Simulated scan of single mutants.
Amino acid sequence: MPVIHSTYTPPFYFRNGFLATVYSGLLRSVTLEQTRERITLKDGDFLDLDWSYAETKTNKLIILLHGLEGHGQRPYITGAAKHFNNHGFDAIAMNFRGCSGELNRNYYSYHSGWTQDLDEVIKFALSKYEYSQIVLYGISLGGNLVLKYLGERDHVPNAVKAGIAISTPCHLHGSCKALHHPKNKLFHDRFLKELLERLKYKQKHFPEYLSPEAIKNIKTLKDFDDVYTSKAHGFIDAEDYYAQCSSLQFLDTIKVPSLIINALNDSFLSPECYPVKEAKNNSNLSLEMPNYGGHVGFIDKNNVYYNEYRGLEFIKNL
């Protein structure tokens, strides 16, 4: 499908990508009533799902996937859930393993290509409720998961009608290099601090897999992926993990209508994260590249973000 012309224009002071990113990550607030449900996975681990509901009984569901070190109460998740709730969708905010406030049971946890848990959540929702329209909505890392899930499978459940991916690092190696750039040091260091804090707890539970000395040698996000993410999940090293899990290579085979919204001033994304050629070659793939928005910072009116408006609009026009 041809690349979509974007009409998004934020207030002047939020045209700066850094300001839009920081404001949206630290200062945005969304009020939403959620109900938590824990499910047991095939391997004996667990996931916590945060539900919110439409005002009346519905056959429509949106499943929301957060970004790196996020969770189901982040405003970029609750904002989208609330907007879709207000328009007739129930919502599940997935908390990835270890991200709901409690350490998961296994040494491995989650990563940018770990689509198995999403598959289990979809099947769980379909087994428990009569949903005939499911929308998958991923932010950042969660966006990569959505696109990889849709493109790597020969078949997805018939109820899955659309995918939406926001601020998505389609090319993980390129995005990793972007995050290591000095202009992103504030974000890089914050992510790394949160990851290391959790890894220290995990090391105490699984000392046979990881030593305190190995953790001390982790100085960058790539180091973290070399030491933990890759080894814990069966990859050779970080670069092998990035190569196998980048959604870019799966975009050609997506058969479900999908929308990617990546801002051109998103400092987390490399040039490869704007898949123009893939969108033009796949009629099921739409790509919108607003000039503004930073990383998940598409600030708009009434505390409903542009990506939330556009996501719903995209679904209505299918």
Rank of each mutant, 00 (worst) to 15 (best):
N317F: 02
F187K: 06
A80G: 01
M289R: 00
K57C: 09
I62L: 10
Y8A: 01
E313N: 06
K280W: 07
L26G: 04
L147M: 12
F84Y: 14
I261T: 09
D90G: 04
F124D: 02
N86K: 13
E213D: 15
F314H: 03
G72N: 03
H111A: 03
H180Y: 10
Y274V: 01
G294H: 11
L318N: 05
S140I: 11
N217G: 09
N217A: 13
H66Y: 06
L103Q: 15
Y13P: 03
A93F: 10
A232I: 07
Q116R: 11
G163T: 09
L285M: 00
S52A: 15
E313G: 01
D45G: 06
M94L: 15
W51H: 13
Y13Q: 09
L172C: 04
A214N: 13
P257W: 11
F14W: 14
Y110K: 00
R105Y: 11
S267K: 11
N303R: 05
D154W: 05
G151S: 10
G88Y: 04
Y306L: 05
S109K: 01
D119C: 07
A20Y: 04
S52R: 04
T78I: 08
V227M: 13
L210N: 08
R36N: 13
V256G: 04
V121D: 02
K231H: 12
D300K: 10
H295K: 04
E33S: 14
Y107W: 15
Y209L: 11
A214T: 13
Y209Q: 11
L118Y: 02
L26V: 06
G79C: 08
E69H: 00
T253K: 14
K231R: 15
Y305E: 04
K216D: 15
Q73Y: 10
Y23W: 14
D189T: 08
K148D: 12
V160T: 02
D50G: 06
C170D: 00
L259T: 01
G311L: 06
H155T: 13
A20D: 06
L26H: 05
D117G: 00
P275Y: 02
H205D: 13
D240L: 11
L32D: 14
L195E: 10
L221V: 03
E33R: 06
I299C: 03
L65P: 03
K185D: 12
P182G: 10
F14P: 00
S109R: 03
V276G: 08
K301Y: 11
